[in-house]
Computed example of a mutant assay.
Amino acid sequence: MTQPTGLPHNAGHSAATPRSGAAVLRPLLAAAVLGVVVLYGVAFAASPMAHNAAHDVRHITVKPCH
């Protein structure tokens, strides 16, 4: 009895199939917008705890903040 050596092939989609520009751009744009919202939402938050947490992360990752 032989064992399969690879993953099962999905005939509907192949990793080698090129994606259209919109299919690649849409997730990248969504990630960028989410990142900006999170950064500015936390950085300018009314809660001092959220602001201080973001501030501390900037210091830990050696990024200027002042």
Score class of each variant (00 low, 15 high):
residue 66 H to G: 10
residue 37 V to G: 04
residue 27 P to A: 05
residue 28 L to P: 00
residue 25 L to D: 01
residue 15 A to K: 08
residue 49 M to W: 13
residue 63 K to F: 07
residue 44 F to Y: 15
residue 16 A to V: 13
residue 14 S to V: 09
residue 12 G to H: 12
residue 51 H to V: 05
residue 53 A to I: 06
residue 20 S to M: 00
residue 42 V to Y: 08
residue 34 L to I: 15
residue 30 A to E: 14
residue 2 T to H: 12
residue 29 L to P: 00
residue 33 V to P: 04
residue 49 M to E: 13
residue 5 T to W: 13
residue 14 S to R: 10
residue 28 L to G: 15
residue 56 D to F: 01
residue 55 H to V: 04
residue 46 A to G: 11
residue 8 P to E: 11
residue 24 V to P: 00
residue 2 T to M: 12
residue 65 C to G: 12
residue 3 Q to S: 07
residue 52 N to L: 03
residue 29 L to T: 13
residue 9 H to E: 15
residue 13 H to K: 12
residue 56 D to H: 06
residue 41 G to D: 00
residue 65 C to W: 10
residue 49 M to R: 11
residue 63 K to S: 14
residue 55 H to Y: 14
residue 21 G to D: 10
residue 23 A to E: 07
residue 50 A to Y: 01
residue 28 L to T: 03
residue 63 K to P: 01
residue 22 A to Q: 04
residue 55 H to P: 00
residue 20 S to G: 05
residue 50 A to T: 02
residue 39 L to A: 15
residue 37 V to W: 03
residue 16 A to R: 12
residue 3 Q to C: 06
residue 66 H to E: 09
residue 15 A to Y: 09
residue 58 R to C: 10
residue 7 L to K: 11
residue 52 N to P: 00
residue 45 A to L: 01
residue 25 L to M: 04
residue 61 T to N: 06
residue 31 A to G: 06
residue 30 A to D: 10
residue 5 T to I: 09
residue 2 T to N: 08
residue 57 V to I: 08
residue 4 P to R: 09
residue 28 L to I: 09
